[in-house]
Amino acid sequence: MSTDINDVELVSSSQAHTGRGLGTGNPADQFVIQPPRTRTTKTPRRTRTNFEMLAWLFMRLSGVVLVVLILGHLIIMLTLDGGVSRINFAFVAGRWASPFWQGWDLLMLWLAMLHGANGMRTVINDYAEKDSTRLWLKTLMGVATVFTVLLGTLVIFTFDPNI
């Protein structure tokens, strides 16, 4: 048997990863299922911003504040003084006459929406396989978030009890 070096197809260990099997030209490579978005030598490096860290910190800090805000909100709305049965237009108008409750609701709106949107962003980052899908889902979510936050803010500040 000949062991001529030309008979052997050399595959170097530092060979660029093609994302389709080993790139040896073997027709069976098409059946090898690649996991989504593998890391290769061409994977973009370093965004050089602290955005991911700030987003991570925001989730922790807003989470702690939201526990207080939301539990307080639920207790006031559902259990104290007869609970839900007393909630009506006058009750809401009375609460929003005070800057304290306006501030509470505003903070709760902003933190909950941003906290939820950031959580959805990580879910989209995880599950969307194509860059275009990811972009569209995030755009849709961003628009919905901005709309809800702005509408809520507008209502809190321009609420007129004599409507």
Partner: peptide
Amino acid sequence: LAVLKDLVVDMDPFFQAYKD
């Protein structure tokens, strides 16, 4: 990781992250 045959997977992406 991409399965190449039976229990053998393509470790390139894994070692790429290690190198990075």
